[in-house]
């Protein structure tokens, strides 16, 4: 083969192999590792199957935080203004976990429709609202408004 051509083949082969590996890995693992955000309304409406890993979030309902008397288990509710969902977490909550604070939890729904969280995130800024939570609140408000208008007419 002509050396120039051989080199070009060499290059193309490398590229094809590289891109092939990349695409293969991407396709395989993106499907496994993305976690969809679900609002409390969606969860309450039963749109979320039990046992699927999701992220859920909202504002921590005041007075809903209950700690186990032994161990580190804690149960609390989050709301998007329209519906509430209970979350159980066994571990240390982040510094900015407070009632009224927006949080996001990663976990699975159990058969009592309690989210068994493996991770609870609250951002390190007292003025910060996780964007998903903000959207969920706005959506719930909008829907609420619509429902009200419908009722009025």
């Amino acid at each position: 083969m002509h050396p120039q051509r051989k080199k070009r083949l060499h290059l193309i082969l490398f590229l094809v192999v590289g891109v092939g590996i990349a695409v293969g890995l991407l396709a395989y693992s993106l499907s496994q590792n993305i976690n969809l955000f679900q609002t409390p309304t969606q969860i309450a409406a039963g749109e979320v199957p039990v046992g699927q890993t999701i992220r859920a979030g909202g504002l921590v309902v005041a007075g809903s935080v209950e700690r186990d008397s032994d161990g580190l288990g804690v149960t609390f509710k989050v709301t998007d203004g329209a519906a509430e969902v209970s979350i159980f977490y066994d571990g240390i909550l982040p510094d900015l976990f407070r009632e009224g604070q927006g949080i996001v939890a990663l976990g699975k729904l159990d058969d009592k429709r309690v989210l068994q969280a493996s991770e609870v995130l609250a951002k390190h800024d007292e003025n910060y609202m996780p964007p998903e939570v903000q959207d969920a609140l706005e959506q719930a408000h909008k829907d609420g408004k619509q429902a009200m208008t419908e009722k009025a007419y």
């Binding site: 693992s29 993305i34 969809l36 992220r55």
Partner: peptide, 28 residues
């Protein structure tokens, strides 16, 4: 780059809010 922008793209296409977990980046 893809993992970082993927949630942005999905959100933009109106397919929901997702996050790409650390596990994905590790696998890659």
């Amino acid at each position: 780059l893809l993992g970082t922008l993927y949630p942005l793209i999905i959100d933009f296409m109106g397919m929901g809010k997702i996050s790409v977990g650390a596990a994905w980046f590790n696998t890659m």
